[in-house]
């Protein structure tokens, strides 16, 4: 179990409250930015409803969830869970600089929880990656369908560990800045930079290996 447990999504709000007090007691975790867990003093934000948030931000959340490694069949459930947490935590939104980093902070915790549960169930989400790509294509350039390339990308991202995948996805696909990623993931800025570097290197190796496998298969 990682020490940053306080940042993991927890479906039981009361348990989150308990973790909140544990967080204050632990010096390592206390150094990280706090994730408020109880509605303090919500301010008046007239004119925007929960459904406005849903309608305007759904595509963003949907897409992000997919990129973070939720299988297609579970996306709807995970997205629904995210918006339920959003609804429960509307009060926390106060004072945030950006709706999207706030939303993504919630999304990432729900996704982590989902992936852990999937793993515990022994779900093997990895399809045979070779079967995905057109057998005659030698490189990603030549993959006829762009959608297929995206599938390959997601399968390759699955080979990264979760921390690096998150940072790589947020930086390269969501195009967030390092401070934004730090806010979203709850990691500190140095950690974000380190994970991004390491994640890029590892991803490059994964892609190279994938290319080599394909070359061999075609010979």
């Amino acid at each position: 179990m990682r020490p940053s447990i306080a940042f993991d999504y927890d479906p039981e709000p009361r348990l989150a409250d308990r973790l909140g007090s544990a967080r204050a007691a632990s010096p390592t975790v206390a150094a990280m930015p706090p994730v408020p867990s109880s509605p303090a003093e919500p301010k008046e934000i007239e004119g925007i409803t929960f459904l406005d948030l849903y309608d305007t931000q759904l595509a963003f959340v949907w897409n992000g969830v997919k990129r973070l490694g939720v299988e297609d069949s579970a996306i709807e459930d995970v997205v629904q869970e995210i918006f339920l947490v959003v609804h429960r935590r509307l009060a926390d939104f106060e004072g945030r600089s950006s709706i999207r980093t706030w939303l993504f902070g919630i999304a990432i915790r729900v996704v982590r929880h989902h992936r852990r549960r999937q793993r515990a169930k022994g779900a093997t989400a990895l399809e045979d990656i070779e079967s995905l790509a057109d057998a005659n294509a030698r490189s990603p350039h030549e993959l006829a369908e762009k959608g297929q390339m995206v599938d390959v990308l997601h399968r390759l991202l699955d080979e990264l560990d979760d921390d690096k995948r998150e940072v790589l996805v947020l930086a390269e696909l969501e195009q967030m800045t390092a401070p934004e990623i730090a806010e979203v993931t709850g990691a500190n800025l140095n950690t974000v930079y380190w994970r991004l570097r390491a994640g890029r290197q590892e991803f490059e190796r994964i892609v190279t290996r994938y290319q080599a496998r394909r070359e061999r298969a075609l010979r």
């Binding site: 997205v79 918006f83 990603p140 990308l153 390759l156």
Partner: peptide, 27 residues
């Protein structure tokens, strides 16, 4: 990142969005 990795990531930036049915169902 090499060119292949770049290419894959660029492709991954295209947004795939929920269909109107999915949108309405979750809503």
């Amino acid at each position: 990142l090499g060119p292949h990795a770049r290419k894959l990531l660029e492709a991954g930036r295209a947004r795939s969005e929920p269909s109107a049915e999915e949108r309405a169902r979750v809503r």
